[in-house]
């Protein structure tokens, strides 16, 4: 499904070399809801960027849906992002110039769906997050929670296998955060694999599988928990 083997990521600047990921190994199975925690600078965002094909890695092997990601060029990676991955960001990252309809439309355009299918998917997904009636609004007219719901609708519109969420509730108050979290849980139940980076231990607990990144390495928290239960 998603498989990382001995992934290393080294950032090279003029005089400093930063080892963001060291021999990072991880397998995520279909239907998982993985939470990723870890202190600031631990490499969890780098992991997410690599997982989302937003960044390249220095060495190692990475298979996504059986495809060796290292073999892909920019347009192949773009295609894969479009078809298999949905993103939800801490800052929502909606395009301020476009209304909700066109925001959700963006990835569908890149997919090349026809007008009818795009319209259907946009309406369906905005309805799914409860914002069908606000299609003509621009992002600045919505609350933070609503904006994040739009971002989720956008991420889901292409029916991705994976949903990558980077602190999806980081900019929300607890009530809104809870709403967004419930939405993600629903989505997971309907079959989408979710990887969520968070620093909130309470939210992390709501995931079915929890991992921790520290100094660029990964460790499974649940295994420990399961052992303790046993």
């Amino acid at each position: 499904m998603l498989e990382m083997k001995n992934i290393n990521k080294i950032f090279q600047t003029a005089d400093v070399q930063t080892h963001a990921l060291r021999d990072f190994n991880l397998t995520v199975n279909e239907g998982d809801f993985v939470s990723v925690t870890g202190p600031s600078g631990s490499g969890k965002t780098t992991f997410l960027n690599i997982a989302g094909l937003l960044e390249t890695y220095t060495s190692g092997d990475f298979y996504l849906d059986g495809q060796n990601v290292g073999m892909l060029n920019d347009s192949g990676r773009s295609k894969m992002r479009n078809q298999k991955i949905g993103f939800v960001f801490q800052g929502f990252n909606l395009i301020p110039d476009l209304n909700l309809f066109y925001n959700v439309d963006v990835p569908l355009r890149y997919r090349g769906f026809n007008a009818k299918e795009r319209k259907q998917r946009i309406e369906e997904n905005l309805a799914r997050v409860g914002l069908a009636s606000r299609m003509k609004h621009v992002p600045s007219q919505l609350s933070g929670g609503q904006q994040q719901r739009v971002a989720i609708a956008r991420a889901l519109a292409t029916d991705p296998r994976f949903l990558l969420a980077d602190e999806p509730t980081g900019n929300l108050d607890s009530e809104m955060a809870d709403g967004v979290m419930s939405l993600l849980e629903d989505i997971n139940k309907q079959g989408t694999t979710i990887i969520m980076v968070t620093h909130d231990p309470e939210l992390a607990l709501r995931a079915s599988r929890r991992i921790q990144v520290k100094d660029g390495r990964v460790s499974e928290l649940d295994i420990v928990a399961e052992k303790a239960l046993a």
Partner: peptide
């Protein structure tokens, strides 16, 4: 820049 980054995340290639 943020919009460009986002569009890339949503599947736009550089040539697009």
């Amino acid at each position: 820049a943020p919009e460009i980054g986002l569009r890339q995340a949503l599947g736009a290639s550089r040539s697009t």
